[in-house]
Design a protein around this nucleic acid. Structure first.
Lengths: 148, 148
DNA sequence: ATAATACCTTAACCTGACTTTAGGTCAAGT
DNA sequence: ACTTGACCTAAAGTCAGGTTAAGGTATTAT
């Protein structure tokens, strides 16, 4: 069992945020001893899940819905499963976009390395958009691909 | 040359958002014909960059700084390069966290598939935290790893 | 001619996710 | 006895990133 301060350290989340999460109903089974919150493994697992679902862009109220289902027993397995499948799709998509963004940034890093060497972008501009060195071209093309 | 409406379609960004970006100084060289914005390849490239930098968590005002440097010529290559290097680190980090989140969600999907088959979580709870099937265990462990 | 459509501006409004403020309880250390 | 530190609440405040509203112009279709 942990105090709010210990959990705050453990997850590197401000105490005020943990209290806010509690207020928003994210810890439906949180126990208290004379007013003081007692976090257990249950709440720790919820916090892991919160971090993942937040990453996938889920809003607090939908996370609340999920954790509520969790404390409602085995009638809600399907609902929880469906939500997670949707989040999986979202996060897989986001991951792809991130990779694109990363390739763009890698390309730009190369670009400015060259620009700094040359002192200008003349040589570089002649190489755009399709006469870049093979590896760099791959980054550039990936970054400029249309999604969907 | 494109109108704001065409760019809106092209990037699937609301017209109001494009105007907001303009107001915030994200298109420092945007031309107008009798009041009407004329977007060119230059602004299109900026929008690609905006999307990447936003992904990396950069705020509008810092994106503005970057595009300003871009329209200030070759004295700012180093500044642009430094910013991009930092963003690269950030996005690589985020990508790792995303992968963790995805593995958590994949684990949970498997978990609820099993729970739905069994009708309860008894068998599953006996497998936690380290007696899961090999592949699933890998997802679980990765998702619960401490960062840094 | 008039109606529809696409553009424009400024200013107010909204939302989500926190954070801060102001005030209070309680236990341990000096 | 009293100060420190960790906990508590309710309510107000903040901030980024848009969005909406209200009012206007300019071009094209009927």
């Amino acid at each position: 069992m942990y105090t709010i301060g210990q959990i705050s350290e453990m997850f590197d989340i401000p105490v005020s945020t943990l209290r806010y999460y509690d207020r928003e109903g994210l810890f439906p089974d949180l126990q208290r001893c004379s007013g003081i919150r007692r976090f257990t493994e249950k709440e720790i697992e919820i916090l892991h899940v919160i971090e993942c679902l937040k990453m996938s862009g889920l809003e607090i109220r939908d996370i609340r819905q999920f954790v509520r289902w969790c404390s409602q027993g085995n009638q809600t397995y399907e609902k929880r499963y469906d939500l997670l499948q949707k989040r999986r799709a979202v996060i897989e998509d986001e991951l792809e976009q991130m990779k694109k963004a990363l390739d763009m940034i890698r390309f730009k890093c190369w670009y400015y390395e060259q620009a700094m060497e040359d002192g200008n972008e003349e040589r570089l501009n002649k190489m755009l958009p399709d006469k870049l060195p093979e590896e760099i071209q791959a980054l550039y093309d990936h970054a400029h691909e249309k999604s969907r």
